[in-house]
Computed example of a mutant assay.
Amino acid sequence: MKEIIITLAEIVNDIHDLLTDMFGLHMTDKQLHFWIIGIIGMVTFFMVHFFFKIIEKMKWSTTILSFVYTFTVMVVLVFAIELQQAITNRGNMEFADAVMGLWGFIVFFLVYAVIAILVYFLFKTFKKKKRR
């Protein structure tokens, strides 16, 4: 995982150099972050907004959106933990650990989803019988 982070850092540095060479822009890191993160944020916002509008029309839209948001938070948390392990040398910083942690969340969520769907259909069936 350490190698992945170093590679990503090198890619970011190469993009910084490319922008400087291509446009002749000599920006400070703060100025570069302002523009690049601002543009990436807006592109991401429009993509997320488009997909969330589609999800909004689905039956369990709140549950789907809650899952997407929670999964995003879990990705950030898992990688923060892995970075903390690398910085403090407590544990091994491995990509496989991060993936396994996310699988844990997905499995627990699937168990919850199965139970919730069963309860939903039981209540729905019970209501139909009660109306008769």
Rank of each mutant, 00 (worst) to 15 (best):
W103R: 08
F46W: 09
G24T: 01
V75E: 02
K57P: 00
I54L: 10
I64V: 11
F105I: 03
R90I: 04
T72N: 07
V48A: 09
I15Q: 02
A86E: 05
R131A: 15
F34G: 01
K30Y: 07
I40V: 15
T125Q: 11
W60D: 12
L102G: 05
L8R: 06
D21M: 08
F45G: 03
F51Q: 06
M27G: 03
I4M: 13
I39E: 02
K127T: 09
K129W: 13
E94R: 15
K57Q: 11
Y69K: 07
K53V: 13
T7N: 08
R131T: 13
T88A: 05
I64S: 03
T70S: 06
K59N: 13
V48P: 01
T7S: 14
L83A: 11
M22N: 05
R131V: 12
V114Y: 06
M58Q: 10
L102A: 04
I37Y: 15
V68H: 00
V75S: 00
I36P: 00
M47I: 10
F23N: 04
E82P: 01
M58H: 05
E3G: 03
I81K: 07
H16F: 14
F109G: 00
T63Q: 07
I55N: 02
F105Y: 13
I6R: 07
A9G: 09
V107Y: 07
A86S: 11
R132F: 15
I81F: 09
L32R: 10
V48Q: 05
L110R: 02
K59P: 07
N89H: 03
F95M: 15
E3R: 07
K130D: 10
K128N: 01
I117A: 05
V114A: 12
F45V: 08
T88Y: 05
Y120T: 04
F95I: 14
V78C: 07
R90S: 10
L18A: 13
L122R: 12
